[in-house]
């Protein structure tokens, strides 16, 4: 089990073995095999590289950005692309667009991470409880889910932001409120397939309570389908957040959120096109990357869907 007892084996052999020696080992083998399949998919890898680059840019923003993203320089406003010192030009207040985009990566990641944590967890909770409990609990929880699915997402998010007030946190909350129902459906469907299986019955006979069965035995089994779905949904989350920002309901003005930047440049689109176009390209690239990676992960983790989709 430990590395020292297998000195002659390479890591690769250890990860590709057909006879894992422990549960952790088996998991590592499965993960490595998935990774190999994902690596064979060039488009998915491209998406992954883009996202890694985004992560690096966000982490290293203070060192990468040539200027302060909030520093105004009214003498140099609306400078075009390729201006010395401002490779992507400046906006209407003379702020460096490249620096703002670099700092904007942090906001995008912040929003995506929060939504990707909140929505699936709420969905998992609702879906597994509904699926495991059945009966009235199931009927009521699923009705509520249906009601939230009945709204167009963006419109519901708009209404929530209107009630909660503008700002990034409220935008995150509004998007999460509109994003959890599909996860609840998935989690419920998965739960229903396990609920009556023998291993759950065995655990129940051993005296496990519903809480333990759900958290320890059902949740882990729902994870892989949820992860795929989250990755595929990330693109939509980014677009929704940018849309709210664009409408002036997400991140507020001085903050370099990409959607808000597009909105800022909107007034000058005909004469100074780069002000809006550059942050829009950033949104597009990141959401494309999530779509590419999500497609690839679906092929790897969920062979049922296959490549036909």
């Amino acid at each position: 089990m430990s590395r020292t007892s297998q000195d002659r084996q390479t890591w690769r052999q250890w990860l590709l073995t057909d006879t894992p020696t422990s549960r952790a080992h088996a998991r590592a083998v499965a993960a490595y095999n998935g990774w190999l399949r994902l690596r064979a998919n060039h488009m998915a890898m491209l998406g992954l590289y883009i996202l890694l680059a985004l992560l690096l840019v966000a982490l290293l923003a203070p060192w990468l950005a040539p200027h302060d993203p909030l520093a105004q320089d009214l003498a140099n406003r609306l400078q075009p692309l390729g201006t010395p010192g401002h490779p992507l030009g400046t906006d209407s207040l003379g702020r460096d667009i490249l620096s703002r985009m670099i700092y904007g990566a942090r906001i995008t990641l912040y929003i995506v991470t929060l939504v990707a944590l909140i929505a699936p967890i709420v969905g998992l909770l609702v879906g597994t409880v509904a699926g495991y409990a059945g009966g009235w609990t199931d009927a009521i929880l699923m009705r509520v889910t249906d009601i939230f699915l009945a709204f167009p997402r963006l419109v519901l998010a708009l209404a929530f932001v209107a009630a909660l007030g503008t700002g990034i946190e409220n935008a995150v909350l509004a998007i999460s409120i509109t994003a959890w129902p599909p996860y609840a459906r998935i989690a419920r469907a998965e739960t229903l397939t396990f609920r009556n299986s023998d291993f759950i019955a065995a655990i129940r006979l051993q005296g496990a309570r519903p809480l333990r069965i759900i958290t320890r035995h059902i949740w882990p089994l729902c994870l892989s389908s949820l992860i795929i779905r989250v990755t595929l949904d990330m693109a939509g989350i980014i677009l929704a957040a940018a849309g709210l920002g664009f409408l002036g309901l997400g991140a507020q003005p001085p903050s370099p959120e990409w959607g808000a930047m597009v909105a800022e440049g909107r007034k000058f689109i005909l004469d100074h096109w780069w002000v809006s176009t550059m942050p829009g390209l950033a949104i597009f690239t990141v959401s494309l990357a999530f779509n590419l990676l999500g497609d690839g992960m679906r092929d790897v983790l969920d062979p049922r869907e296959g490549k036909s989709g």
Partner: peptide
Amino acid sequence: YSMPIFWLGLVGLL
């Protein structure tokens, strides 16, 4: 699936 619709609208207008 990846393009922000408001941005496509702006670029189309441009």
